[in-house]
């Protein structure tokens, strides 16, 4: 079996909202797959379907070869889930939390204890293992939650927006923890709203919107289609915007002008070279600017480039809390 997750024409509706609208998605063995999309794209619904928490309306979904609808018990023996909120018990220590989950995975007391110690060390929580979780920071809680999904050594780890709401340092720590797990041979399917996160962690990226796949590929494939970097010029006054756009034209993609913030952005392939070109072009035209910056494209910009339309922010949010979920 080559695919750890295989979704074909997957559909799921909540009332009139189509969370999944014929999703085709394949995650390969031995690789980290990232499902990237805006709020309401269907990411969470998809992960919940893979985790057997949500029953799809139509299509097929196989996890490690097992059908999620007909063989949910088999699927549950293969997966580990870390959802959006850290589902750890505040009134227990980190160690007690993991031992409990280990026991639920069917490990005997000694095995649960050993697995817990190994996971705590792996996530660098060993020193805090015997403190109550209510004294943990947000980043530590997320890492412990990750540990809870790991303690049963799942074949496939499901991470739903693992770093949402974390500060940059905790985010990087969590990324390191995820990379360490991947090195240990666990397959990972993660969802994220951040292109950078997908780029950092995943070998394959699937971009979804409104319950459908709109683009997929390796990070470098997607970046070469969407532009690797963005040059953004902040003009000193509004009247200069057309001149700025004109100066940047030809360096990369079509300049996008945002009048309200007095900014012009273009996507480019080789950031630093083009940045020099942009500075020269602006200088030779005598255009006065507030500042100029080189940055990574945001998900919105990737969307715009790949689909020609902006992220529809008016779309309702994913229904994260389905009945009894």
């Amino acid at each position: 079996m080559e695919h750890i997750v295989e979704a074909r024409g997957l559909t799921k509706s909540y009332g009139t909202v189509r969370a999944l609208a014929g999703l085709d998605l394949v995650a390969r063995r031995g690789r980290v797959a990232a499902v990237l999309g805006p709020n309401g794209a269907g990411k969470t619904t998809f992960v919940r379907a893979v985790a057997t928490l949500v029953q799809p309306d139509g299509g097929s979904l196989r996890v490690a070869g097992f059908d999620v609808v007909r063989q949910p018990a088999h699927v549950r023996r293969v997966i580990g889930l870390a959802g959006q909120s850290a589902a750890v018990e505040d009134a227990m220590t980190g160690r007690e939390n993991l031992e409990m989950v280990g026991r639920l995975f069917g490990l005997d007391r000694a095995a649960a204890r050993a697995a817990t110690t190994a996971v705590l060390d792996q996530l660098q929580l060993g020193a805090d293992a015997d403190r109550l979780v209510r004294t943990y920071s947000g980043g530590m809680r997320r890492r412990l939650d990750l540990g809870a999904s790991l303690v049963g050594s799942p074949r496939l780890l499901l991470l739903d927006e693992p770093t949402t709401g974390l500060d940059p340092r905790s985010r990087i720590e969590l990324w390191d923890a995820i990379r360490a797990m991947v090195a240990g041979g666990t397959d990972v399917l993660l969802t994220t709203q951040y292109l950078e996160e997908a780029d950092q962690l995943a070998a394959d990226i699937v971009i979804i919107d409104q319950g459908r796949v709109i683009a997929e590929g390796t990070p470098s494939e997607l970046k070469s289609r969407a532009g690797r970097d963005v040059i953004e010029v902040h003009a000193r006054d509004r009247a200069a915007l057309p001149l700025v756009a004109e100066a940047l034209r030809g360096l990369g993609g079509e300049p996008r002008v945002e009048i309200a913030t007095r900014r012009v952005a273009i996507t480019v392939d080789t950031g630093t070279d083009r940045l020099m070109d942009a500075v020269r072009a602006l200088d030779s035209r005598g255009i006065d600017i507030e500042d100029i910056a080189l940055r990574r494209p945001t998900l919105d910009e990737v969307f715009l480039t790949l689909t020609g339309k902006p992220v529809d922010t008016a779309e309702p949010q994913d229904r994260r809390r389905h009945p009894a979920a």
């Binding site: 079996m1 490690a64 070869g65 097992f66 018990a73 088999h74 549950r76 023996r77 293969v78 018990e89 505040d90 009134a91 227990m92 007690e96 409990m100 026991r103 639920l104 995975f105 069917g106 049963g152 050594s153 799942p154 074949r155």
Partner: peptide, 29 residues
Amino acid sequence: MTATTTVATRPGAGLAPSAVAVALRTIRK
């Protein structure tokens, strides 16, 4: 193949042990 070996190593807890684990957590809290 891999799936079968994985299943064998993670049978999951039975009714009584999992009920005890869940109950213990509520009481500790």
